[in-house]
Nucleic acid binder design. Sequence first.
RNA 1: UGGCCUAUGGUGUAAUUGGCAACACAGCUGGUUUUGGUCCAGUCGUUCUAGGUUCGAGUCCUAGUAGGCCAACCA
Length: 561
Amino acid sequence: MSEASKSLNFIEHIVEEDLTNGFSKEKLRFRFPPEPNGYLHIGHASSICLNFGLGLRYDAPVNLRFDDTNPAKEEQEFVDAIKKDVQWLGYRWNTERYASDYFQQLYDWAVLLIEKGKAYIESQSSEEMAFQKGTPIVPGTDSPFRNRSIEENLELFEAMKNGEYEEGTLVLRAKINMGSPNMLMRDPIMYRVLHRAHHRTNTDWCIYPMYDWTHGESDYIEQVSHSLCTLEFAMHRELYDWFLDQVYDEKSIRPKQREFARRNLSHTVVSKRKLLRLVQEGVVNGWDDPRMPTISGLRRRGYTPESIRNFADTIGIAKRDNLIDVSLLEFHAREHLNKVAPRVMGVLDPLKVVITNYPEGGEEWLEAENNPEDESAGSRKLPFSREIYIERGDFKEEANRKFFRLKLGGEVRLKNAYIIKAESCSKDGEGNITEIQCTYDLKSKSGSGTEESLRKVKGTLHWVCVKHALEAEIRIYDRLFLDESPDTHKDKDFMEFINPNALKVIKGYLEPSLKNAQIEDRVQFQRLGYFCVDPDSTPGKLVFNKTVGLRDTWTKIQQNN
RNA sequence: UGGCCUAUGGUGUAAUUGGCAACACAGCUGGUUUUGGUCCAGUCGUUCUAGGUUCGAGUCCUAGUAGGCCAACCA
């Protein structure tokens, strides 16, 4: 649609430029390369939308490749969760790959490097190596093992592979330049010994390749044309290219690494390591807790894939540091949910209203529109009777003209029902209002077309019939952190900024049409916000998560006064 | 005693590659409305600094300033 007129981000410009310089469109190929050591978060969503979006734009294949070179941290559970999340976002990968599929090829190439004198076996401890590595401003010094004979290197490497060495004893290092200003070029480690079972290769290997050695070569094996990663890998590019040089064949596509800035969301953390801490320390109830900025958390919270994709599209891709206000994410949730979420009524802080001139024991079912934004959504029936609940905040004994709600002597429209007038109210010993007595205008029934029904009354309230009300658990969420950027304070741990009130559980009273709501159903509780049925729901007890509130100008007016 | 990257409204991203700085969010005004929602109209506000090249600079050059990243047998 408007795709053609949309401006390009800098990555798309690079692709376009490659195309104009003669790179064949058919050779375009991308990949999304998660490490299966945690759940995907909103930052990954940006990367997913970028890579798969490129695939869609150029009709090019996109692989899902798990970067599974560290069996100490990686698990099948995460592989499954990642696949589910990518699919849920609406993308289809060309093929499912694993870096571990390439272990043999990587090993063979490593042998080749040793034979060319480009790699050697290191016998020192990691402490000794770290010391010789220097610092960003002090050059490193050569390892005493740097000039081992090729024969000895070959022999030791094979022994490493055969499990003859303990973890931490030997590593294979690329022989590059200990004096390089780029620390990554100071003879980086290619292989380490790890006597661990891998989630796919089990105990086939006791040596595992490092990221830098694996990633570029995997891109090369898959003939990925553009390998996109985040900015912290910018320094790795020189090494990426160096490793590629060792195996590159002119007739093949040479992958090109380019880096973009990771997206930071306000009032949360977007880092697998930090999210893992929240899970492990019990701050949240798991990776998919609705307070989490994970894809699974957002899904459970009630976000739609469309809203996340639109969000990613709006924030774009660039290279500068950023802190995206969470209100932009919330905007996209509302924007989509407004179109698709059926309207229902629910009262979360009930105050009983008795309609004194309504017949005792009487009851009627009223017609209610399901979604004013979508005619095809149809309508439903709502029970109405003498006793109803309204929201406690919708009544005041006395109020000024700006209060478009119910006050003593005032009139208000009950959504889809009648106009009522507050006559009196009852209180308990402490002065709390316990009940309101109202009268209703029989002829004002919504949709009846009578003169009375067309009267303009300032204010329409949502309500629920007491007799038919469904009790449900409602989980209300607030931002997980009180600080907009909790993990950027040099002297403070991000955990210090946790919002202790990020979850509030209350009881709500809902209209009976919700009785058979299914898990992940999304609705709008009119005048309140969007809510989603939580997986904790059982046939006898519904649990709703508040996704996001409606825009609330009334609260704003009150705050400004 | 270094290297790499970045700098455009409050936030995020654009600018036909050197040609009138725009889009979205947020904010503020008003209108419509049986959701104080939606929708509609309007409004606020931007090129880090100093030089230079040019008829013309957000874009190119130089210097500065600020921020981020780099010393895991993590990715």
